[in-house]
Design a protein around this nucleic acid. Structure first.
Length: 479
RNA sequence: CGGGGUGUAGCGCAGUUGGUAGCGCACGUGGUUUGGGACCAUGGGGUCGUGAGUUCGAGUCUCGUCACCCCGACCA
């Protein structure tokens, strides 16, 4: 560790000062910078490339399940927001309002969307007339604005990027199935693309989305044992379709309200993958979203034909569809090693005179620091996909192991406190009442994360009040 | 919105009792280097967050103000 210290001197200690570690890492790796307005962030190219990869992978999955993309305006008449009572109550405190244009006061103030249910419902009410118009399966990639009090890059910013799916269905069953389908897609995506294991489950009444009948979430455990809600899928029933008077004439000649869902993930996912996989050296990016999947570092590059060989290698790897970078800058190899480890590049390939002589390369994996491997030069391009897959698998296993070993069964308040203080999730039983959640929050800053679908009881009494328990649930501290 | 902290070169910081604004990294140029953050030489870069005040003189003292970070309450 003493040896490490000289290379990572500018990154705070991950174990004792995790928040500062996070800030150091996102800034130093040029993922993000602060914007001039409080709470805003600039997503720099290295961070935005991760988002583009996330978008591409998710979008593919949305399309494969029949969804189409559209775009709705970011300005919403204030009157729309007010239509659904719970919704306005939940969002009003944090919405940004546009009241003026130049010196002229607008006749109706405008909401800068904090989410788009209201404007989308307003439009859907025009578009849906018949059962033949259902289902409506629309997704939008957009920015939203929520004026949060405390902000952190990617985790909570005044403006952030996300996708929001908004669907209408003829039946409750179909809408419920959609809610679960999208939750499952998020879960699968996080596992296979971000290498993050998620806890799927249902949110409590207290924690659910403002206006939803039911909210489901995927929650991930960060390095410090805190939880991050990484995605949500809501079942609305007819809450909004009634409020916005969306009706269709069904085949039986009866006018009905369609059933609705919405679901979303945001740039917060970038924060999640940083805080799940990162280590003292900095980022450790999952290979399928890493902007650079493999970096080639020529050693003694001005000698013999080193650079030429490196360029040949670059071409073959690039042609194999790998996002590869050849760093032929004048920085020393040691500098480059540290730089790309900090930036989380999954695979590093070294090629120098000794390697060329032997017809091989030395490579090193970001998920297995300190180990070096060799490959015949001729096989590099074809072998990389399997190596990246193994990196993803190994990163997932590590994260899963962390989650499992830090999820502790609890049966009373003391055990909950002990667990979360130790950086664990506390899994136990809950009576289902709001008062217990409030008490937990007040006394130890702990919230209910979600209720797993496996509701096999792990006890019969509420861990908070001791009364008969109704639900198996995860307690934890959250971002 | 409470509690704590920080604002001085692009970044990280020093600046003593109030007396010519500095160091490291980064950056430009020339050269030597290159298998875990190379080295020599040389050069450029500042409204000390901001506004008042005290003073012959303020980075330094006083008051205000703004921004950011950390910890809480609110949230994807």
């Amino acid at each position: 560790m003493a040896k490490d210290a000289q290379f990572v001197k500018d990154i705070a200690d991950i174990e004792t000062n995790f928040p500062q570690w996070y800030t150091d890492v996102v800034l130093k790796t040029q993922m993000v910078d602060y914007g001039p307005v409080k709470g805003t962030m600039v997503i720099r190219p290295y961070g935005y490339a991760v988002w583009e990869n996330i978008q591409r992978e998710l979008d593919k999955r949305f399309k494969a399940t029949g969804h189409e993309n559209a775009y709705f305006p970011m300005f919403i008449p204030y009157s729309y927001l007010v239509k659904e009572a719970d919704h306005v109550e939940g969002f009003a405190p944090e919405v940004a309002l546009v009241t003026h244009v130049g010196d002229m006061e607008l006749p109706e103030k405008l909401v800068v969307r904090p989410t788009s249910e209201t404007i989308i419902c307003e439009m859907y009410s025009k578009w849906v007339q018949s059962y033949r118009d259902l289902p409506v399966l629309i997704n939008q990639w957009a920015n939203v604005v929520r004026w949060e009090k405390t902000t952190r890059p990617f985790l909570r910013t005044s403006e952030f990027l996300w996708q929001e799916g908004h669907t209408l269905h003829r039946t409750e069953e179909e809408a419920r199935a959609e809610t679960m389908r999208m939750l499952d897609i998020y879960d699968e995506f996080c596992r296979n693309v971000l290498a993050i294991p998620m806890m799927k489950g249902r949110k409590s009444e207290k924690e659910k989305f403002a206006g939803a009948k039911e909210t489901y979430s995927i929650e991930a455990m960060m390095h410090d044992g805190k939880s991050l809600q990484c995605g949500t899928s809501h079942y609305f029933g007819t809450n909004f379709t009634e409020a916005f008077d969306i009706t269709y004439l069904d085949s039986d000649g009866v006018r009905k309200h369609p059933y609705q869902t919405s679901w979303g993930v945001s740039t917060r996912l970038i924060g999640a993958l940083i805080m799940v996989h990162g280590d003292q050296r900095g980022l450790c990016l999952p290979p399928y979203v890493a902007p650079v999947q493999a970096v080639i570092i020529p050693v003694a590059m001005h000698k013999e034909g080193v650079l030429e060989k490196a360029k040949e290698l670059y071409e073959s790897v690039s042609n194999a569809g790998i996002r590869v970078k050849l760093d032929d800058t004048e920085n020393s190899p040691g500098w480059k090693f540290n730089e790309y480890e900090m930036k989380g590049v999954p695979l590093r390939i070294e090629i120098g005179p000794r390697d060329i002589e032997k017809g091989e390369v030395v490579y090193s994996r970001r998920d297995k620091l300190g180990e070096k491997f060799t490959l015949p030069i001729s096989e590099v391009a074809e072998r990389i996909p399997a190596i990246l897959a193994d990196i993803n698998r190994n990163m997932y296993e590590k994260a899963l192991n962390h989650l499992k070993t830090h999820t502790i069964k609890v049966s009373n308040m003391e055990e909950i406190r002990a667990a979360v203080d130790n950086g664990d999730f506390a899994e136990g039983m809950w009576c289902g009442c709001r008062e217990c959640e409030d008490k937990l929050k007040q006394e130890m800053q702990v919230t209910t994360r979600n209720m797993p679908f496996d509701q096999t009881p792990v006890g019969d009494k509420c861990a908070i009040c001791g009364k008969p328990a109704k639900k198996r649930i995860i307690f934890g501290r959250a971002y």
